[in-house]
Structures are given as C-alpha cells and as structure tokens.
C-alpha cells in the first residue's frame, strides 16, 4: 500500500517572499517544495508528497473558512490521505496557520500532523485537534524537526498503534486512554508517595491542570444602572435540556432567554448536572440560579437590569480546555451586550 499526502507551508518557506507576501491566498503546486524536499526523503518509499499548498500566514489566519475549504478540496482532488504542515518553529502566525490547516483536515476525516516550537501559540489552540511534533524555536532546527515528523506521519498512515506522547514524540493532546498495569492503583500510589518522600523522581499518572490567574477587574461604580448577567456551571437549563448538555464531561454550554421570567419554576427549568443530588435544584432552580431575587432587586432599582440571556453548562469532569474556551466566548458575548458584571454560580 502506498500513501499520498499534501504538505502545507507558508509564503516564506514556499519561496514567494517574506512579511510583504503574507497576504498571499492559498495556491497549490504539484509535488514538493521547500522543506518538503527533505521531508520526502525521510518519509519512506511508500509515502509520496503529491502536492504542496503555499499560503500567506496573514491570509490563512484571517480567511480561515476559505483556506480550510481549499485544503480539504485539495486533499480530495489529489486523492490524498493526510496533510502535514510546517515546521513552523516559533513563528506565531505560521504556527496558528499550520495548526488550523491540520485541524481543518482532521475535521474532514484526514490524518494530519504539524510541527512547531512548544510555546508557539498554535500549540495551545490546536494540540487537541491534531498531532503536533515539537521543534526548536528557529529554522536552524530544521534538520532535527523533519525526522520525527516523517516517522510519526508514517505510523499514522499505516495505522500503527501509538504509544504515549513522550514515546512517540508529539505534544500531549489531553486525550485520556485506558491502560492495563501490573499493579493496582493503590500500590502505584503508595510507590509514588514513597518515591516522593525519598526525594526520588517519579512520574504522575494524572497531571493537574494549571489554572489561569486574571487581574481583578474594577468594581461596578453605578449598580443602580448596571446590567448584570447570570452564568452557572450548576446545569440549570429549560425543562427537557434542549441543548443536551451532558450530565458529566459536558461538551457544550447553553444560552437561554429569560425575558419576562420572574421566577424559575419546577417543571419549567431543571438541572442537567449529574454530579450532585438534583432533588433540591429541580424543586426550585432559583436555589442554583437566583433569578427570583435578581428580578426583585431589578424592580426595586438596586440593579439596572438583569441581562435577558443567561449561560449554563455542567461543571462535572468538564475539560478545563473546554471551560476556558466557553468562558472566553461567553465573556465576549456579554461584553458585546454591554453587560457590566457577572454573577457566576457553581454547585
């Protein structure tokens, strides 16, 4: 079996030009170009780079929909199985472009792989969507970047079972897989503790997420004229959970209109949260999302108004990366709606 792949590079590595050509729309060239020459030699006889997509970094980042469609179309037309992108080293927009290109290919069902410096912003954005091979921070590291890219792409194409990210040489994607161990969890935990006590190195089996810190925002000066929004991780949703927010490991959040609602009644609202006893929240959803009290305070002029939309998800085993993304989206929507402050309730 032989495999056909397409290589994605930017205007610089495509030999078109530097920053002045960063607005270049995507173009396709038959065969290899730029770093693809080196890559082709490493990929093995059964893998052929059939075409190269060259695209300006600015163009890609600002025309994602169009570039994504271009890439998927090229893969289909060339009967290719995979997209390989970069390496982008520490070029931020190139890293984002490579990550995006691979994510677009992956979403359409193609194998994809990018390579860049671990601190490239493209890593944080796209590591969950594609495989990213770590590289040095500049193009002097080309020689060491290409062999692991070729090796991992070969494995992916051949459908070989992958080991851990460390063993395979790609950046951890935040994917959990089941593994069998000789020793049960309790024994491994005690072993780990003993190593820790002896000051010996040990490897955790479950890394704790690193949480963000945000500079406190200034206070609301005029509460009597402020619009206040409600957001909750306690899973309060309209009865029937119309957006199917999962009881645990939620994959989405909901936006619900409470115009004219003065009290969350049992039977009209419920909780979708599977991590606590739902009895009390279902009896009176205001116990989690205090709409009744905020309507009173609104009527009394203590606050300007309660924002007509509220946002809800279930905070129960939910991936921090998802929560961060939704938080940013909700924040942007609230800012656009001129909301001055947020009450966030959690169970």
């Amino acid at each position: 079996m032989s495999y056909r792949i397409i290589h994605y590079i930017n205007q610089f590595f495509g030999g078109v030009g530097g920053e002045d050509k960063a607005d270049l729309p995507p173009e396709i060239r038959e065969g290899v170009a730029g770093p693809g020459l080196g890559l082709a030699k490493l990929l093995g006889a059964d893998v052929e780079i059939v075409a190269t997509i060259v695209c300006g970094d600015n163009y890609c980042v600002s025309h994602q929909e169009e570039v994504g469609a271009f890439i998927v179309d090229a893969l289909r037309k060339h009967d290719a199985q995979a997209l390989i992108a970069g390496p982008a080293f520490n070029a931020g927009r190139y890293g984002m472009a490579c990550g995006f290109a691979c994510a677009a290919a992956a979403q359409a069902g193609f194998i994809s792989l990018a390579a860049m410096f671990p601190e490239n912003p493209g890593v944080e954005l796209y590591k969950a969507a594609t495989y990213i091979v770590p590289t040095s921070d500049n193009a002097r590291g080309m020689g060491t970047a290409l062999p692991p890219m070729a090796a991992l792409m070969g494995k992916l194409l051949r459908g070989e079972k992958l080991g851990s990210p460390e063993a395979e040489g790609y950046i951890e994607r935040g994917v959990r897989v089941n593994t069998f161990y000789e020793k049960i969890g309790a024994e491994r935990a005690v072993d780990m503790l003993l190593k820790k006590l002896r000051g010996e190195p040990f490897v955790t089996e479950y890394k704790m997420p690193v949480f963000d810190r945000v500079t406190p925002r200034p206070a609301v000066e005029d509460m009597a004229h402020a619009t206040i929004a409600l957001v909750t991780s306690g899973g309060i949703v309209p009865q029937g959970n119309p957006d199917h927010i999962a009881a645990s490991s939620a994959r989405n959040y909901g936006e619900y209109d409470i115009s004219g609602v003065t009290d969350l009644q049992a039977g009209s609202y419920q909780t979708a949260h599977g991590g606590y006893d739902q009895t009390y929240a279902n009896q009176d959803p205001d116990r989690v999302l205090p709409v009744d009290v905020l309507r009173d305070l609104e009527k009394e002029g203590r606050i300007g108004k309660l924002h007509h939309l509220y946002y809800a998800t279930v905070g129960n085993g939910t991936a921090v990366s998802n929560a961060r993304k939704w938080g940013a989206e909700i924040g942007a929507k609230l800012r656009e709606a001129n909301v001055q402050a947020v009450i966030l309730t959690s169970t």
């Binding site: 609230l334 800012r335 402050a341 009450i343 966030l344 959690s346």
Partner: peptide, 18 residues
C-alpha cells in the same frame, strides 16, 4: 467586567482563580 463566584467550596473558587 467583574465577576463574582458564588459557590460552596471556597478552596475550589480560589484554585480556579476567582
């Protein structure tokens, strides 16, 4: 815009950065 976190387990609010 300022956000206030209302939750029962204060150490969690603190660890997530409220």
């Amino acid at each position: 815009m300022p956000v206030v976190h209302m939750a029962s387990i204060v150490p969690i609010s603190q660890s997530v950065g409220a």
